[in-house]
Design a protein around this nucleic acid. Structure first.
Lengths: 138, 138
DNA sequence: ATCCTACAATAGACATTGTCTAAAGCAAGT
DNA sequence: ACTTGCTTTAGACAATGTCTATTGTAGGAT
């Protein structure tokens, strides 16, 4: 399994059945689920879990930095449990499938000071778009 | 003013008061408005314009490549009239303000074939995040 | 082992954003 | 001016996310 639960406990996170189930869903398959997909999988393990709890828990995990929120231009945010290795994303414009990718280079260094407009820039996110093999075949 | 209307007409776009107003709103201030902000400004010029028309028209402009859709992780998509010069975005994590930026380098070249998973990659979008001077001061 | 208390979960209303439909309107070619 | 097919409209609907007041409970204190 994982040390995610351990890490959370170590940070004083109060452990409940609901939170454990949400963490297990994220930890189990490394895909990029929407909040409602997480909810559906959580319900399979713990039928009485509510939608609000799943949303709350996801929000907390994001705040704690254990999970990343990914906005492609699909409707719903997706949640990425791979928060501890920096990476970017490759999105299928047709079906919305997402893959983690690791481009070479450091895009952070590519933004000159003259283009920062006084912002304190702390993060950069690179999203490649294209068509996945599946959709290309169809 | 602009040749946006001319370009559209040249492409056989049937010109209506509603479409003209939406195009004018986008052309007028070069900021990144949400669909409902566009609607609000359009209503100011043409009170009977409907929300559906604004959404439809924005969608058509995106399809025609005259306007870009920008998804930050805010709730609503934003529309960027600066579709003809390639650029990326710098977003304030607090207030959601967006600036167009021009990083050096070519991120498209930074994704090795081995990281493309058989996708046909056609586009890349780089989003810098940080805190704008206004929010930093507050 | 039991009790307390602050934190967490719940149901469901509500809010926001976006999409669809069927009927009425109208731009532009003839 | 007429006609035709594209556009617009209002409002219902759908999808996603947020909030609130109440009830439940984890984990420390006794």
């Amino acid at each position: 399994m994982s040390d995610l639960l351990e890490r959370l406990r170590g940070r004083g996170w109060r452990m409940t059945a609901q939170r454990r189930v949400v963490a297990e869903v994220l930890d189990g398959e490394h895909v990029h689920l929407t909040a409602d997909e997480v909810h559906a999988r959580a319900v399979a393990k713990l039928p009485e879990i509510s939608r609000a709890t799943v949303y709350n828990t996801l929000g907390e995990l994001v705040t704690l930095g254990e999970v990343l929120e990914v906005s492609t231009d699909q409707r719903a945010k997706r949640y990425d449990p791979n928060a501890h290795r920096p990476h970017h994303h490759l999105v299928c414009a047709q079906c919305g499938a997402i893959r983690d990718v690791h481009p070479v280079g450091n895009p952070m260094a590519d933004l000159p000071d003259s283009e920062r407009f006084g912002f304190t820039v702390s993060d950069v996110e690179v999203t490649y778009r294209g068509v996945c093999p599946n959709c290309a075949a169809a």
